[in-house]
């Protein structure tokens, strides 16, 4: 767990990551609150708070007496929200760092293109 951030948010993010990666599928069952608590060694109330956060956002839903399931469309909803955050969490800090290093916007664009090309080349090599 990352210090300094509420654990319930981190639990919610990990469940979201598992949904994005396909480890948890839509309409599939997710572990119980107590199982999350034991696995991550956290207080069950905290784990419950993380799960409830996802229920409020419509990512998970409860089937009474059975357990918690991933909602249909959860993956799309998570992706949409993460894309909005991408600008704040990745693009903005990158622009700030670029500015402090004196990298001009068009140079930055070129760097990204180069990086993508290099990535594709090395991908081909490993195949």
């Amino acid at each position: 767990m990352d210090e300094g951030r509420p654990i319930f948010q981190q639990i919610a993010e990990r469940v979201e990551n598992d949904i994005l990666s396909g480890a948890l599928v839509e309409e599939g069952q997710v572990p119980s609150t107590n199982e999350f608590a034991m696995f991550y060694r956290i207080n069950p109330a905290t784990a419950g708070k993380g799960v409830n956060l996802l229920v409020e956002q419509g990512i998970l839903y409860k089937r009474r007496g059975i357990g918690m399931f991933v909602a249909t469309g959860a993956r799309e909803r998570i992706t949409a929200r993460r894309r909005e955050l991408f600008v704040l969490e990745y693009v903005a800090p990158m622009l700030a760092e670029a500015a402090s290093l004196g990298i001009e916007p068009d140079q930055l664009g070129q760097l990204i293109t180069d990086q993508l090309t290099a990535g594709r080349l090395s991908e081909k090599e490993t195949r």
């Binding site: 990352d2 210090e3 300094g4 951030r5 704040l88 800090p93």
Partner: peptide, 16 residues
């Protein structure tokens, strides 16, 4: 956080 980043400041969490 945005204001701090714009001012070139680093923010780190303080552990429990």
């Amino acid at each position: 956080h945005r204001a701090a980043a714009a001012a070139g400041l680093e923010i780190a969490p303080v552990s429990f």
